[in-house]
């Protein structure tokens, strides 16, 4: 029973690719709009050979990584502040709760007005998307830290000013890690919006250009590249998270 599951699992993607190839070549569908995987592969190889692929990849990675790091750092810092200090929470939480539900993509028009097509505007969108998720999970994590641990730490002579580093941050870490992981996929969503709004390089930008030239092979290659990037980022983070929350 188990063996057959593994076997079928290993065949899942190859079967899909073969079916795609057969259908795309059968003439049932328009091969220009729905190219077979072999055509997509050729388009990808050409993209890499031209040297353009790594420029695009670099531009996109820079936006995602920088935006994620800045957004996550701000989110953790403010989440600790609002989670720990009721006064800060009273001041900021209502504002954050109003801004948070607005889909980050909806900010594209105003971001173009503010920043034009500059890198700053693209980073702003990614930071904005990442920040609220990380802020909320940190805020909740800090508030949910086991009171019993804090009482135990107090009884052992832990000074109040060391409580944050000794107990609160580590106690909230499992929540923060979940927030960061969600924020990774959000950073890719916002990257798409940022590059579609206008750019000069980037994976999504290249998808858009290829679409305008009816190079559907490259469009699909771009999608595959984007999916792979997001997948690798998630897996890398999962591996890091396992080591970060080592006591689980």
């Amino acid at each position: 029973m188990k063996r057959i599951n593994i076997l079928v699992g290993a065949l899942s993607i190859p079967l899909f690719v073969v079916a795609w190839e057969v259908i795309a070549r059968s003439g049932i569908v328009n091969a220009v709009l729905f190219p077979p995987p072999s055509v997509v592969a050729v388009a990808l190889v050409e993209w890499v050979r031209s040297g353009q692929f790594f420029l695009d990849l670099g531009a996109s990675l820079y936006r995602v990584v920088t935006g994620f790091v800045v957004g996550a750092a701000l989110g953790i810092a403010l989440g600790v502040l609002t989670g720990q200090f009721a006064l800060v929470s009273s001041l900021l939480s209502p504002l954050f709760h109003i801004l948070r539900p607005i889909p980050p993509i909806a900010f594209v028009p105003i971001v173009i007005l503010w920043f034009g097509l500059s890198e700053t505007g693209k980073l702003f969108l990614v930071v904005w998307g990442v920040f609220f998720t990380v802020w909320l999970s940190t805020h909740i994590g800090v508030q949910k830290v086991d009171r019993g641990l804090i009482r135990a730490a107090l009884m052992l002579g832990t000074p109040r000013r060391q409580m944050l580093q000794e107990i609160v941050l580590l106690g909230a870490l499992p929540y923060i890690v979940v927030g960061l992981r969600t924020a990774i996929s959000i950073s890719f969503y916002t990257l798409v919006a940022a590059e579609l709004a206008g750019a000069f390089a980037g994976i999504v930008y290249r998808i858009e250009i290829a679409q305008q030239n009816l190079q559907t092979g490259q469009v699909m290659g771009g999608l595959a590249a984007l999916g792979l990037m997001s997948f690798i980022a998630d897996r890398l983070f999962a591996a890091v998270a396992e080591r970060t929350v080592w006591w689980r």
């Binding site: 086991d146 019993g148 641990l149 135990a152 009884m155 107990i167 006591w247």
Partner: peptide, 15 residues
Amino acid sequence: PDVGMVFQQPHLFPW
């Protein structure tokens, strides 16, 4: 610190 406490739950630091 001169008064120690053991609670009903161990409340050990899990990390």
